[in-house]
Design a protein around this nucleic acid. Structure first.
Lengths: 348, 348
DNA sequence: CACTATTGCAAAAACGTTTTTGCGTTGTCA
DNA sequence: TGACAACGCAAAAACGTTTTTGCAATAGTG
């Protein structure tokens, strides 16, 4: 079968084959203009027979929109688009993609590593995930006049459109949970305060400590935000003269590191140390003891952010400009204090 | 600050401000044409000062490319883009995104649920993940003449460009591993044979059984491919008159279901039942006993697929048209048979 | 010094649509 | 039957770039 001299199949060819003008073809296929149903159907048939697909780029140029929404993860690690490293990101991305499709948009992915890479893509709007202080991505999109919504707030700047987990309430709730399970001295294992969630957790923690007459005890995970960092940071906490009897880690992977560190030092969880982490994940569910989590709702975050950015794009100014998504506590083994254990603790 | 009457900032405005033609602006910014270095720099300065960003859509229309590569997951569940449900997909997607950025492309995501959604996006190429039998997505892209690469082969059609895990070799290796740990009667817990990996695993298993004079024992996970399905299917296996003493599940989540089922029946893993799963995941690492896995390499798959589709796009016909990526076995607790256990088994 | 290359830039044609405008033709009503 | 609206479609102008072509002015050559 000789491949026919591949002449481009455009609206012009369809018009010719159907014996009408390109205007009529466009109108017929898009349901616009004034055409007899007969003409409309005829054109549709011809287009179908020829297998015509309108050129998306040309359509975008004429229509002034691309149907693309960007999803940029601001917090990257060594330039990699490390979505798979955190279940939260995976779920957020997945739900956002589904929501975007439902709204007639497609999602374009990239890391925030270089803002320039975004320049060559025509985006109708953008969702910036976990913006950092003085976020370059947000600046870029603002400069370009592209509507954008952030997931998490831009630190030191409360304006703009954003969707966020209610970290303040959540942090207080999980600290209350730990206290209710007998914790007398809760430490915070936190990521560096470059994102709003890290800042919120820290602030709430300190406030909570003040209210509960506890001395704040904060360890910061350096390097990456993995189990290794959590392990290391926990080591320092436990070597203190007055070690904590509970740790709340602001990320599940850090919390898993706490479990490992406890095990390495022969500390029993939850008997001698209560552990809770933020963000639920499979790993936490399967760990032994299973990890009590402050569950965020990345899927709702994604859906809300998408709805908001679509609102911005399509002109219906979203009101309110900010959305807080509720969190909930999933109590599991790592904070399950048995009667026996409680007595043992009381003696200590 | 009154917002200035927002006149569009295009190449025309830059040309006017710089006192040159739009041709010169285009040439200056793209490093083409014949211009004095002075002119070139002058135009660049003006463009910079005005904050000019070329319109991506127009550029695409003129240039005939969009810089977009689609990533379509063919196997969807109830229309959702369920990337986050499987670590394999998350990692594949993440690595592919990074690779795409490095190659100067951006990745567009969508589920394979409706092939039509892809029509309105101008894609230079597509990666179809885990195509199913008679894959509608592949058909669509083939019809549109868009270069595409599949990750996993299209069942019943070995042609086309594809990248795949070496499931045949991997399956044999993991079965050998189980046999070496004392398994006498290995069952296969498989997903429905709609994708090439499911088919490959099944074929290899049956072949291996024939060679090792074992009666094949296949259970199929219905409904979804989650722990629940694995649990249920395992129940049926274990209720047989001659139950298996080892199970290989073609998906990690199914394998986790096997662990749960064993626990529910009071069967000790690995002493009384060996368990292995395909694809490594955090959950498997943290499970107790930890799950022996046939680790795939989604990141390499993603990178290879991306390189291949870029090759197709840019005309350098990729040779070979097919790539097999090696797998490796990660032996963990679920197949760790101790001396004592082996003796117990020998007696049984 | 005449003739040809080369240089530096501008004009214009593409890219493939959508949308606005325009213009005959037909139908309606007084 | 004439005026006017409604109808059915075509022509042409956008959309904002890139790329090809063209044309002076300058430099190089015999």
């Amino acid at each position: 079968m000789l491949p026919a001299m591949k002449q481009p199949l455009g609206i012009k060819q369809v018009a010719e084959a159907a014996g009408v003008s390109i205007t009529t073809v466009s109108h017929a296929l898009n349901g616009k203009g004034r055409l007899t149903e007969g003409t409309r159907q005829h054109v549709r048939d011809v287009a179908e027979r020829l297998g015509y697909r309108p050129n998306a780029t040309a359509r975008n140029l004429a229509g002034g929109r691309t149907g693309l929404i960007g999803l940029a993860v601001a917090q990257t690690f060594e330039g990699r688009f490390a979505v798979s490293d955190f279940a939260y990101y995976s779920q957020l991305m997945s739900a956002t993609t589904t929501a975007a499709m439902d709204a007639g948009y497609a999602l374009v992915l990239a890391s925030g590593a270089d803002a320039g890479a975004w320049r060559s893509i025509g985006l109708d709007g953008v969702i910036v995930v976990d913006p950092v202080r003085g976020d370059p991505l947000s600046r870029e999109f603002h400069a370009q006049g592209i509507p954008f919504v952030t997931t998490g707030r831009v630190p030191d700047s409360d304006d703009g459109h954003w969707v966020d987990n209610d970290h303040r309430a959540g942090t207080r709730a999980i600290l209350d949970h730990l206290a209710a399970r007998g914790a007398q001295r809760v430490a915070l294992l936190a990521s560096p305060p470059v994102t709003s969630y890290a800042i919120d957790a820290r602030d709430s923690y300190e406030q909570w400590c003040a209210e509960h007459h506890q001395e704040p005890l904060v360890a910061e995970a350096h390097d990456d935000l993995t189990e290794g960092s959590g392990f290391e940071a926990t080591g320092k906490l436990l070597r203190r003269r007055r070690p904590p009897d509970a740790v709340y880690a602001t990320l599940d992977r850090l919390a898993l590191g706490v479990l490992l560190a406890a095990k390495a030092r022969g500390l029993s969880v939850p008997r001698e140390l209560l552990v809770a982490g933020c963000t639920d994940s499979d790993a936490g569910k399967w760990a032994r003891p299973s990890l009590t989590a402050l569950a965020l709702d990345p899927e709702e975050i994604g859906r809300a952010a998408l709805a908001m950015v679509v609102g911005l794009i399509e002109g219906t100014d979203p009101d309110p400009a900010n959305v807080l998504v509720a969190t909930r506590i999933l109590p599991r083994g790592s904070t399950r204090r048995r009667v026996l254990a409680r007595r043992a603790h009381a003696r200590a």
